[in-house]
Design a protein around this nucleic acid. Structure first.
Lengths: 327, 327
DNA sequence: GGGCCCGATGTTATCCATCACATTTCGCGA
DNA sequence: TCGCGAAATGTGATGGATAACATCGGGCCC
């Protein structure tokens, strides 16, 4: 509360407050030399816009609400990172609220908290179905986005699953396993579905499936009990890189070498993947880009422009490294 | 803009708008049965508080600005994660703005953006000195925090560096190297200083020092040229785990085995550290706790309570694993 | 030179919740 | 039953910006 208002500025500049307001909004109807005087007064007084007052009258805001779940995971974090950069470029601020995506009541409260804050739209970083549902239910109140589906194509994550699977079949693996993320997450389901479909389409079979919680710890626990030898499994896919890393550790603990005995492929392509031992084969998913895309499409909806101008998403790409090899 | 105001609610409940306002603020001076009628009207109309109007009149906000830099790194992200959880508990929202911490002008603009948004305080997640400086310069305008220093003690990160160093000397290493993060970051400098001081205090010497940018890629590049054999270095510390991981890979590439030829210890204790091969020895740093602590102390300052009630920070703890061994 | 028109600028009302103060209601003792 | 003080409730003004409308001043045309 510096307390400097447009009236103070107006007095110093020798104009009316309305002229100051017009200048601030970049209106055409201000003579250049008048603008200069206003700007000088603005600087001299250290004026700062009171966006609350602006909103109260005009209903315009440059704030977007974000429901964030599990910011301890690389996926949501990378998405968020993409969101913040894109938001900055478009002149928006993000209002972040942490939610427990497994608690419908908490999601609803968080949403209320955001909606009481005058935001122009809402984005869900936590793409668990609970959050998606909550958004869908109250989506009428404000523009909201919760997932990206490239027009007419499969979801990005489905493609990522497929790319991983095809890499394995290309290497000759037909008896495979898959360690998915929590299936309450859209991303986990899509990746799993894409993987399973591609394996089936190429005549292989997914002989084992597990459901982790994205964490390395969960993958390690599950990894110790995968019936690799019993079922003759030669390759395993994982829903994200953290799980792939711990999976490899769990297999190693059991005397199963990667990739000699079992190939393992992750998903995400975290920055460290190529420096691991063995270097982790994985599918890079452009989550920063996805975040930028979500933000752009939301802003497009808010500001009423077509929305086709958003940059194309980088498709999932195979990063073949040391943790996978021919059968 | 649902458009429901307290006047609408008041009409339905058969009271004055002021009574509704009092009820919303939890005032004592409302009879229970009146309160019920108001609540019923609130629900019936789907009223939502207009925080802009509230701010305009009362000057109160429950929003905090956050300057976020490098959200692609685990450190800042974990801090942010701690901030969001703590903020939620205290009833605050975080207004996040991405900044380029290497560009003073950009930091200043971001700060202006935040300050134009009616926030109760500002937190810098990007602890590069540029950001710290910008905050210090304009800190008079609003409560701001940019770093945590435990009263009367060394900074947490200095302790972390010391813990890593002492682990190495305990194992008999006296000729060591250190790969620091970018020294424009307080955290990087503290960790490096703590490490160097502890090594010196125990009669060892830091024969090589490098400065990475926190990224695995930078560490790999530097790792290929460390004169390990020439200088007789037997152990190397790294400013964070990402760099430690890539450092191990770079050494392996040169035929130097970890830990047999060289011990390597990281800092942070990322979730995957224990599942790597070799499992990464590191120093766990409670960055979530640090975030919670920063938020608490800021909120304490804002709300005017003593601030001593904040939970104690978990001190850095040695996680001795497979990447370090006796000389 | 007069009238018209348009761009630049000024004036007043308004957005919605809170503050400060005014008024009514209630409970209880005399 | 009345009066009093405290609690409950109501009334009007206010915060800082924008919207809508009014006015002023020139340039241009005839």
């Amino acid at each position: 509360m510096t307390g400097v208002t447009i009236y103070d500025v107006a007095k110093v500049a020798g104009v009316s407050h309305q002229t100051v307001s017009r200048y601030l909004r970049g209106s055409e109807h201000v003579r250049p030399e008048t603008g200069e005087r206003v700007q000088a007064a603005l600087d001299a007084l250290g004026y700062r816009l009171n966006s609350a007052a602006r909103y109260l009258r005009s209903g315009r805001v440059n704030r977007l609400g974000v429901l964030a779940h599990r910011l301890d995971l690389s996926g949501p974090v990378r998405l968020l990172n993409g969101l913040t950069s894109a938001a900055r470029e478009r002149g928006y601020l993000l209002d972040i609220v942490a939610v427990d995506g497994n608690d419908a009541h908490d999601v609803s409260r968080a949403l209320s908290l955001i909606l009481g804050q005058q935001v122009a739209g809402v984005i869900a970083v936590a793409q668990s179905t609970l959050v998606t549902q909550a958004i869908a239910e109250r989506g009428a109140e404000l523009p909201m986005v919760s997932d990206v589906t490239v027009e007419g194509e499969s979801p990005l994550n489905e493609i990522a699953g497929r790319v991983a699977a095809e890499h394995l079949t290309d290497l000759g693996h037909t008896r495979v396993g898959y360690l998915a993320g929590p299936l309450t997450w859209l991303a986990a389901r899509h990746r799993q579905d894409g993987f399973a479909q591609a394996i089936a389409a190429r005549g292989g079979s997914v002989l084992w499936q597990g459901e982790g919680d994205w964490s390395a710890a969960s993958a390690y626990a599950l990894g110790t009990s995968i019936p690799v030898r019993e079922l003759g499994i030669t390759a395993i896919g994982a829903g994200n890189d953290s799980m792939a890393i711990a999976l490899i550790a769990a297999l190693a603990r059991r005397g199963l070498r990667v990739p000699d005995d079992v190939s393992v492929i992750g998903t995400d392509d975290v920055a460290e993947a190529q420096y691991l031992q063995p270097a982790l084969s994985t599918v890079s998913v452009d989550q920063e880009g996805e975040g930028a895309h979500m933000l752009d499409s939301l802003v497009a909806r808010i500001e009423g422009w077509p929305g086709a101008g958003v940059p194309p998403l980088q498709p999932p790409r195979l990063m073949a490294r040391g943790s996978t090899t021919t059968r």
